[in-house]
Design a protein around this nucleic acid. Structure first.
Lengths: 216, 216
DNA sequence: TAGATTGTTAATCGATTAACAATC
DNA sequence: TAGATTGTTAATCGATTAACAATC
């Protein structure tokens, strides 16, 4: 809704972290927090935290700090977590099933309506009430059910083909776990989770410990 | 081996991407590439690519570009992918099983020797030859087998406890999938994969499309 | 040799940190 | 009122881009 001049991506990537910490505070029953205390928890500087939050408005109060519940709910709105998103998972292997099973995503408003696979052995099986269907039915399922998010957990060879089905079906966002760059039209948002790249970075840091110990 | 003054983390995080593209080129039988061509493929500027690579040495040749096979192998060495790492997975649910099953990691030299869980129903089962053992045996298993990497795929409530077992056992690097910050002694490298944060970022970008369409 | 492309320095841009007046 | 802490501007730091001489 804001007509801000586009908040930088590095800021956006920190928001979910703030949100998570605020959630922890909420669960602990703490209802007031200063940027300094948040700094200790998150490792970001207090200055940066205040700067980040002020991209979206002045949520704090001088002399007091931030109200945890309020800030949590504001960040939730900013991140779009006040809505429910319907999603499907393409690829019903272990990773797809792991995501379908994970309560955390459902709790945050991301609902998985179906898994899809081409393996006949999997088709018909249910993961926590969520049926695995034939990938041939995916396009019509997405259209009929107003699915907004498509999740790719297939091998990389199938990723582009799946992405194209998503595109044809009117999907708005793709969460891609395949180690491949998928190409879709510009207004579809693609968020990649490159597990390889994360593992390789771990490997690098392990081999160059001296330089990176206690990095953040 | 290098005694460089510590290459910036943003550079390190791009290396696995270069490595992946070079791997694709290798598989296509292409043996020569310029920074300009790499730029087109990766979306990074040619200038940035040359800068990044020159943190580690001059791998190119004026007037020619880079030899794909050579650069690939150099990056592999830099990332530490020329070694084999022994790892164990704590948490034998879907996510743990997905990782144990994923050939890509084994191919890159990350070998999973065992999964661990506390659920008696899972203990004894094998995932692709990899046995699921009782988490009570984890510490001794790690010590006896010289395990270097511990992977956490448990619910967040158990993550810290698992991390402490890893620490006691002499683990050198932790790949953490639990949405929690784990605290271990400084010289253990921790690489976190926060799936929630990735999903929330997707949600944000979907809700602010106008500003972020065709971001990179 | 002429053309191409690197390696590297300098210029620019953007992000982080510091500082402090405003104010609860 | 005194103390605390924000919101915000200015200063610093670091990362990216541009430019070009070196050289294959």
């Amino acid at each position: 809704m804001e007509k801000e001049n586009r908040v930088s991506i590095t800021v956006i990537r920190r928001l979910p972290k703030y949100y998570r910490y605020l959630n922890d505070l909420l669960n602990k029953g703490i209802n007031r927090i200063s940027s300094q205390e948040l700094s200790k928890m998150t490792g970001f500087t207090a200055s940066q935290i205040r700067q980040d939050l002020n991209n979206f408005g002045g949520f704090g109060q001088q002399g007091y700090g931030y109200n945890v519940e309020d800030l949590h709910s504001q960040l939730g709105k900013i991140l779009g977590l006040d809505k429910v998103y319907k999603s499907v998972i393409a690829g019903a292997g272990n990773l797809g099933q792991a995501i379908a099973n994970y309560r955390g995503f459902q709790d945050a408003g991301f609902e998985v309506l179906s898994l899809f696979d081409k393996n006949p052995k999997l088709i018909g099986i249910k993961i926590r009430d969520i049926e695995i269907r034939d990938v041939d039915e995916m396009e019509s399922f997405i259209k009929e059910n107003g699915i907004e998010i498509g999740i790719i957990t297939t091998p990389k060879e199938s990723a582009q083909m799946i992405a194209e089905i998503f595109e044809r079906s009117g999907i708005k966002g793709i969460w891609n776990f395949a180690p491949a760059d998928i190409k879709v039209k510009e207004d579809i948002i693609v968020e990649n989770v490159y597990l390889n790249e994360s593992l390789f970075a771990l490997s690098y840091f392990m081999n160059n410990k001296k330089d990176y110990v206690r990095r953040d």
